[in-house]
């Protein structure tokens, strides 16, 4: 399997799966900046930990802590599923 086919966005990754961040696609500067500040830099491994009872947002485990992000914003994070 080549890498291209495994490229997806973080909202598609399932509960309890891990993924490696490739890049941020967001065009909105503030959101991109916030995601970078919270540690979502290229190469970092994240884990889908919890889904909020109403289905959104998603709690991901990253750099030893839990970060909640809406699905809309997860769409802006390109990842490879591990």
């Amino acid at each position: 399997m080549n890498e291209k086919t495994m490229l997806t966005t973080l909202d598609k990754v399932k509960l309890n799966q891990s993924a490696k961040v490739v890049r941020l696609l967001s065009t909105k500067n503030e959101i991109k900046r916030r995601l970078l500040d919270m540690g979502l830099t290229p190469g970092v491994v994240v884990h889908i930990k919890k889904i909020a009872p109403l289905g959104d947002p998603i709690d991901i485990s990253i750099r030893d802590y839990d970060l909640c992000i809406r699905k809309d914003d997860l769409k802006q994070i390109e990842v490879i599923v591990l």
Binding site: K28, R34, L35, Y65, D66, L67, C68, I69, R70, D72
Partner: peptide
């Protein structure tokens, strides 16, 4: 305004 985001730590 534009729709916003929700990016926050869960302590």
């Amino acid at each position: 305004g534009q729709p916003s985001s929700y990016i926050t730590e869960l302590p």
